[in-house]
Amino acid sequence: MARIVSLAALLGAWQYLSGRDNIYFVPPVQDAASSLWNEVVNGNLLRPALQTGALALTGFLLALVIGTVVGVLIAVFRPVSYVLEPIMSASNATPIAVLIPIIGIYLGLGFSGKVAIVFLFCVFAVSMNTTSGIREIKSGILEMTRAYCVTGWRRYRDVIVPAAMPALMAGVRISAGRAVQGALTAELLLAVSGLGLYLMNAGNRYDVPDLVAGTVFVSAAAFLALHLAGRWEGHVLRWRTDLKN
């Protein structure tokens, strides 16, 4: 109930602002809504969304594979953790955007350059979550594994990987958000394309209803990506009875 009231108040304030003459950057609610509807129906938003989605997904999957492998290596082999862990945590706190001006020199301004940005946005979170997931496995579980003589490959497949799964999937969920962030950042700042191109064009035309519609659409798409990642997490962890309340 309180939410409905607040939403109504927000829309009311929006509508009030759009009526003021000196504020040109707030379009009337119905203009933005009809613009959103039209642009979705005629495919002007969906076509670039597929492009952006492909970019985000490629970088995300690459980061998932490489981040998991590196995370496992760091957790399992102590020398690897000595040399790589400081690099990982420093990179995670580094503003990746500083690399945007030079990525073109090495990877070009096409798909691979943009994938590299998405990858760098995601990979450190995946790796660090994997590492801490494996490290935080309770020693009792590992002791029991030893007591039942589960060794080698089966120890990883049946015990360590499932036990580390919750942390790993948390990394996946965080990275899904960062992948969309990275994709939009790359599409606006590295080489304009996809939804970035759509937003840029609308902004340059001063077509404010289209711009607001595009921004809302991007937000909804990001929400969908996070929702799907959450569903995947729930599916993978469905055996964890303690997570269901």
Partner: peptide, 23 residues
Amino acid sequence: VLMPYVNGLFVTPTAALLPLVIL
């Protein structure tokens, strides 16, 4: 009342807001 908006803003890729913010 506020958390849906906070989370909505968090989910939105911040870079996508640049063309709007500049206006």
